[in-house]
Amino acid sequence: MNGQDRRLPYDAQRVDTPLTRSAIFLVLEVVDEPTAIETVRSVLSSVADISKNVAFRDLTASFACTVGLGSVVWERVMRTERPRELHPFIPVAGDVHSAVSTPGDLFFHIRADRQDLCFEFERQLLAQFGSAVRVADETVGFRYFDVRDLLGFVDGTANPDGEELADATIVGDEDPGAAGGSYVVTQKYVHDMEAWHALTTEQQEQIMGRSKADNVELGGSTTTQKSHKSLATVKDEDGEHDILRDNMPFGSPAAGEYGTYFVGYSRRLWVTERMLERMFVGEPRGCHDRLLDFSRPVTGGVFFVPSMSALSRLAAA
């Protein structure tokens, strides 16, 4: 994706930041203390200032941070009605696999071409939050070769770009109170690499729907079993509905942990939810995404990324 071609409204948070070399995915819970909400509001209103302070150390490193809020804390923190589609992550139960829902009030998508900048931002952020939050999950991601996941396939090929990007990711006049914002769904997938490597390359390609070496889309299957690519594509009478994926690999060979952190930004939350239903339940039912036989979700969250002006207003309220 060419970052110069990605255009969002000026007031939107930088969900369009091109894929960087490093990232931290940070999910926090707000503690049940009398002063916690005010502390959270103060810190969120200063995220832009913390970002500038860190980004200034290397202006070529593409530093960015996107912050989202969950439905449980939305009204208490923002003091406005929640966006129309915002709700907790709804578990998806298929006949074989399930998408789980896990706790989380705040989501920070921290990224840069230098890991030290991500580290420094997270350090300053958590220092300002103090005891008002606790960490629900922290995952450190990295770019793997030519934008591949640890399964060996190029990830994010079908992302929207140019003028299509804003239409796919940024809420408009259909929800005036949430205009300029974006829904984001997060899931942490852990891979069974031993089982995956036991497959032939041809079997892996049939599951993914793309060739492994050169990322060429494969033809449709003549059977009812659809590929991951097909099941992750949502179409209806209005055409194909895109989301913006900013997935990243994570892992530790020493710990035997290998995975992908899924981040999906969208203008319409139902699009991502429909995608997950197709993957886990199957279409037709029972023909689930075979990638799930080798990749298991251990977290699941839904957040809304408000506009920059909505965050800045927290300082004055």
Rank of each mutant, 00 (worst) to 15 (best):
L59C: 12
D5Q: 02
E174C: 13
V100D: 04
T272G: 00
E33Q: 15
I110R: 12
D167P: 04
V271L: 04
R114A: 13
D289I: 07
E164G: 12
A198E: 13
T299Y: 02
N53M: 05
S42P: 03
D146Q: 15
L311Y: 09
S227L: 06
D95Q: 07
H241T: 03
G251W: 10
W270L: 05
S312H: 13
G172C: 02
P160A: 00
A195M: 04
D11E: 07
D137V: 12
G209N: 09
P176D: 01
T233M: 08
A166L: 00
Q203V: 09
L276F: 15
L69H: 00
V15Q: 02
T139N: 00
D146R: 15
A168G: 03
F25H: 11
W270I: 00
M1V: 05
D167R: 14
S22F: 13
T157P: 10
D105W: 14
S98I: 05
E29Q: 15
G259N: 01
A213D: 15
V47L: 15
R268W: 00
E273I: 00
I37K: 05
E120V: 13
M279I: 02
V100L: 03
V47N: 14
S230Q: 15
A136S: 05
S230K: 11
Q203G: 09
A99K: 02
R82W: 12
D11I: 04
G104V: 09
R278Y: 03
T139C: 03
